[in-house]
């Protein structure tokens, strides 16, 4: 197997499992989750970052070797997302940003149009932009053209743990877009993360499924293994799916004898 590198914004990423930091019972769990998941890319809601707090500043709990991906959670339009991203940069959170624009508090579905507008502005400003979106091929192409470093379609509505419900649409995006496709949101079980990876996703981002597990640290490790297995299966080329069982000893084998 040739070297399988994931490169986003010019940086080689060693783990294809990205993790979130919200919803944990304590920030002190974060380093343990980072360790057991092997994740390198860690997303943080800028709205929660409190640089002035000694005990509760989430950034103090994220190991230095991680790539910080601040997200614009709470933004209701492009303008707010842009302001939050700039704030993150000013706070010293680096130049990566996950754009999250949600103006629907009921289903928490992203607003692709506003996300595109924010992508365009922030990419021009030199941010490594990873837009979180509802899977839509044309919109993803526009985001690519606007300068997105990767696109992050949702597998199911955020926080639902429902799995890869958008599989067909995500598959089309993987086939058609020459950017890393990161499945973000909805993944509820390691098997679903593996499914996304088998499909050819570049990475998956998981938060709720780990944070709401009985044993968060073990679940983080389980996801890590599943993502690796899924990726390996994708690279190995999964066998074709057939409608009928096929015997390992073929019925017409005698013809070749």
């Amino acid at each position: 197997m040739t070297e399988d590198a994931l490169i986003i914004g010019g940086t080689q990423i060693k783990s294809r499992l990205f993790i979130g930091t919200g919803k944990y019972s304590s920030n002190s769990l974060i380093p343990k989750i980072v360790e057991s998941s092997g994740a390198q890319v860690v997303t943080v809601a800028v709205r929660r970052v409190d640089l002035d707090s000694k005990n509760e500043n989430m950034l103090n709990f994220i190991p230095e070797e991680c790539i910080l991906m601040p997200n614009t959670s709470g933004a209701r339009n492009a303008q707010e997302a842009v302001r939050i991203a700039r704030l993150a940069k000013a706070m010293g959170c680096g130049n990566w940003v996950k754009i999250e624009v949600i103006s629907d508090t009921k289903y928490l579905l992203p607003d692709n149009y506003e996300t595109l507008k924010a992508t365009e502005i922030l990419a021009k400003e030199g941010f490594v932009v990873l837009p979180y979106m509802s899977p839509d091929l044309m919109m993803a192409k526009r985001m690519r053209d606007a300068g997105a470093a990767a696109v992050m379609p949702l597998g199911a509505p955020i926080g639902t743990n429902k799995g890869l419900k958008t599989k067909e649409l995500v598959k089309i995006m993987i086939d058609e877009i020459d950017l890393p496709i990161v499945v973000d949101a909805g993944i509820g079980k390691p098997s679903e993360a593996a499914e996304a990876m088998e499909l050819g996703a570049a990475a998956v981002l998981v938060n709720t499924a780990i944070a709401s597990a009985g044993d968060e640290v073990s679940m983080a490790e389980a996801f890590s293994l599943a993502v690796k297995a899924g990726r390996m299966a994708y690279l190995a080329g999964t066998g074709a799916v057939k409608d009928f069982a096929e015997a390992s000893s073929p019925l017409t084998g005698f013809l070749n004898a």
Binding site: S25, S26, R47, R48, V49, D50, S53, E56, G74, I84
Partner: peptide, 16 residues
């Protein structure tokens, strides 16, 4: 809150 396994969040919004 910590003893109940919950994280106290003092900041959940940032004036922008």
């Amino acid at each position: 809150l910590y003893s109940k396994g919950f994280q106290p969040v003092f900041k959940d919004w940032q004036y922008i």
